[in-house]
Design a binder for these strands. Structure first.
Length: 222
DNA sequence: TTGTGTTTTACGACCTCC
DNA sequence: GGAGGTCGTAAAACACAA
C-alpha cells in the first residue's frame, strides 16, 4: 500500500468512525468555496495504531511531554527561538523524541510567545489610553473652570464700566476725588471676589485696560 | 460524574528564502 | 524545489465548577 492509499484508507476509516468530523470540510454543491480549503488531517491515533504504536489494543494516546523534556526544551527556547536542524536533531536525540516533535514544540512555543507578547502590548496600550482619557477629563474640567472665571471677570468689568460712567456724568470735575472721598462701599462694591491663598485674585480678575478695546478711557481710574 | 473551558500536541495549508 | 517559518485548527489532556 503506497502513501496515498494509506491516507485514503485512514480517511475512510476516520470518516466511518467520526462522520460528523468530516461533513463540514466537504463543500456541498452550490455552496461558496471556503477561502482556504483544508484537507482534513488524518488522525494520529489511527496512524500510530496502524504503524504498531503504543497504547492498549494498539490505540495510540497523544503523549504529553515529560516535565524534564519540557524543561530542556524551554531552556533551549530561551537561548534561541529559531531551531536550526542540527540543534533540532541534537535535542531530539537528547530527549528521546522525534525531531518532528521538537520542531512542532518550537512552532507552538513561538506561537505562545507571540500571543503573550501581543497580550502584554495590548495591556500596555490599554493603560496608556486610560491615562490619556483621565488627563483629558482633567483638562476639560480645567477649561470649564477657566471659562467660568473669564465670564465672571467680564461681568465685573461691565459692572465697573457702568459705575464709572455714572460717576463721570454726575461729577465730571471732581471725579476721582469724589469717588474716593464719598465712597461708602469698597471699590468693588458688594461683588465677592474669590482671592486665593497666594493673593493674586485681583490680577486674575482684571485684564490690563490697555489690552481691552474700547476701555482706554478707564485708565485714569486704574 | 459530567459538562465546559483551557492548554498542549500535532498537522495541513500556505508563504518565504536560499 | 525543499526546508523551515506562520497561521488556523483538531483533538487529547487537563482543570474545575456544578
Amino acid at each position: 500500500m503506497n502513501d496515498q492509499n494509506v491516507d485514503d484508507h485512514n480517511f475512510l476509516f476516520i470518516s466511518q468512525m467520526y462522520p460528523s468530523v468530516y461533513t463540514s470540510s466537504i463543500p456541498g454543491q452550490g455552496e461558496p468555496k471556503p477561502a482556504r480549503p483544508r484537507r482534513r488531517r488524518k488522525s494520529k491515533s489511527v496512524v500510530v495504531a496502524e504503524a504498531g504504536g503504543e497504547g492498549s489494543n494498539g490505540w495510540f494516546r497523544k503523549r504529553k511531554l515529560s516535565n524534564e523534556q519540557v524543561r530542556m526544551l524551554e531552556m533551549s527556547f530561551g537561548d534561541e527561538h529559531k531551531l536550526e536542524s542540527e540543534r533540532k536533531d541534537r535535542l531530539a536525540k537528547e530527549l528521546g523524541l522525534d525531531p518532528r516533535q521538537v520542531a512542532v514544540w518550537f512552532q507552538n512555543r513561538r506561537a505562545r510567545w507571540k500571543n503573550k507578547r501581543l497580550e502584554d502590548e495590548y495591556t500596555r496600550l490599554k493603560n496608556a489610553h486610560e491615562n490619556v482619557v483621565v488627563e483629558k477629563c482633567r483638562l476639560d474640567s480645567e477649561v470649564l473652570h477657566l471659562k467660568e472665571q473669564l465670564h465672571d471677570a467680564e461681568r465685573e468689568i461691565q459692572r465697573l464700566a457702568q459705575k464709572v460712567e455714572g460717576a463721570i456724568s454726575n461729577s465730571p470735575i471732581s471725579s476721582s476725588v469724589s469717588i474716593e472721598a464719598n465712597q461708602t462701599t469698597p471699590f468693588f462694591g458688594d461683588y465677592e471676589v474669590e482671592v486665593g491663598d497666594d493673593c493674586d485674585g485681583y490680577e486674575n480678575l482684571f485684564y490690563s485696560p490697555k489690552y481691552i478695546d474700547g476701555f482706554e478711557w478707564m485708565s485714569p481710574f486704574m
